[in-house]
Design a protein around this nucleic acid. Structure first.
Lengths: 128, 128
DNA sequence: ATTTATGCAAACTATTTGCATTGCC
DNA sequence: GGCAATGCAAATAGTTTGCATAAAT
């Protein structure tokens, strides 16, 4: 299980860092293919999984949508438009103590938490 | 667009109420098929969508998993085991004021929010 | 030389949709 | 009778996987 730094791996990591936030696997793939037409979707997915596991990038699981990948930045929350599906960052303090509010976790060991706000984005509000 | 109360619709609603919480479309379908072998998966999905829209049941979008459907109960938060994928209720007060903590929503109109804790459930902790 | 990683295609999971038919109101 | 809803199957979206080949160490 020795890591091997392939061009493809490097490309995926660089592209996630370049796109900064909320890029889906497909967007990352699209961005890479432009320059490297031979890379395969499977490889992009495999590397996104690998890099999330090593902690080099962060995976954001979107309810009702495709997973997104972020470069490492401060933890923050998200809002998703229920109409267009777009994900936005929310300007709100991260609540590291939130997990202490749990009265009884029934033996569940908590590792992290996400807050996802749902609503209508400005764009969609305009066109409705 | 006049609602028509079919046997299938009634069955889906009753089954969601019976299973109480966190039943996936598939679990709901399985439960109904036992008694009514002719019902189709498509119909179950269509009715789950319909009943969520009318507000008769609640849809819970699970990041990285299948959507769940709840009968109407008090709002609460969830924890999902990153190993087995099971969803649990969390015994923690609902925070109706959470949305007020947002400093700048950039014109985003917030309708609701979810908090999802991630971690390892007691079962999976045992077997690792 | 070894063995991890790739490319490709096929498989898979969750869900939606087109269409002819059924059956509620 | 009219139109909403069904059953079925095919389509879709997102992602994973098996396998032979390529390439990093």
């Amino acid at each position: 299980m020795n890591r091997r730094n392939t061009i493809q791996r490097t490309l995926v990591l660089e592209t996630v860092n370049k796109l900064k936030c909320h890029a889906t696997a497909d967007e990352i793939y699209d961005s890479i293919v432009k320059e490297h037409p031979n890379i395969s979707r499977g490889t992009v997915y495999r590397n996104l999984n690998y890099l999330s596991e090593t902690g080099e990038i962060r995976r954001l699981e979107i309810p009702g949508g495709a997973d997104c990948f972020d470069h490492l930045c401060h933890k923050h929350y998200h809002a998703r438009c229920i109409q267009c599906g777009h994900v936005f960052d929310v300007d709100m303090e991260y609540l590291p103590n939130l997990e202490k509010n749990i009265k009884d976790a029934h033996g569940f060991e908590i590792i992290s938490h996400d807050i996802i706000f749902k609503g209508i984005c400005p764009e969609c509000k305009k066109s409705s």
